[in-house]
Amino acid sequence: MNFIVFVNEHYTEILTSILQHIYLVFFSVMIGILFSIPAGILLSRHKKAAEKILAVVSIVQTIPGLVMLGLALLIFGVGNTPALVVLSIYSVLPILRNTYTGLTEVQPGLIEAGRGIGMTLSQLLFRVQLPLAMPSIISGIRISTVYIVSWAALAGLIGAGGLGDLIWTGLSTYNTNYILAGAIPSAILAFLFSGIIGGVQRLATPRGLRGSTA
C-alpha cells in the first residue's frame, strides 16, 4: 500500500529515471553494435588473430563492473560520459563474439559455392554470410542489452542517473520504496528488451533456416 502511495508521489522522478535508463542502454548498445559488427567481420577474415583478440576482450570482460566504473570515474569524472564509455565497452564482447562465430560457422561448402559461381567478397558477405549469421548476431545484441540494463543500474553510483539512482538512494537511506521503484522497472526493462529483441531475432532468421515449424 505504502509503495503505491510512494509511486503516486514520485512518478515524475521514476519516469525520468526510466527514460534516462533507456537512454543509457540504447546509446551504449548502439555504439557497441556500430563497433562490433564491422570488427566481427574483420576478425572473421583473420581467424588466427581473431582467437587471440577475442581472448583479450573476454579478459576485459572479467573486470568487475564496479571497477570499470571506478576507473571511468577517475578518468572522466562524474556524469553521463564515463557511464556511456564503460557500458559501451561492456556491450562489445557478446556482439563481437556472436558476429564472429555466426560468420565463421557458415558452412565452408556455401563459401566455396559462392566463390565458385563468381561472387565477390562483399557479395558473398552481404548475400550469404551476413543473412545466415544474422540470428547469431542478434542473439549477441540481446545478451548485450540484458547485461547493459544491469550494468546501467550500477552506473547510478557514479551519477549517471537512471534507475540505479533510485536503487542507490534506497540502499543508502534504507528506504524500501526507493529500492522497489528502481528495481522493479529495471527488471521489467530487462525482460521487455530481451523479449523484443528475441522477436526481432525470429523475424531476422531467414525463412529457409526456420525449421519445419515456421
Partner: peptide
C-alpha cells in the same frame, strides 16, 4: 577471376545451395 567464374558453371558435392534463398 570473378568474371571468369560467372562464365563457368560450378557444382560441388556439398551442394552449397544458399539456405536463406528460395
Amino acid at each position: 577471376p570473378v568474371e571468369l567464374r560467372r562464365s563457368i558453371g560450378y557444382v560441388i558435392q556439398q551442394i552449397g545451395l544458399f539456405p536463406n534463398m528460395t
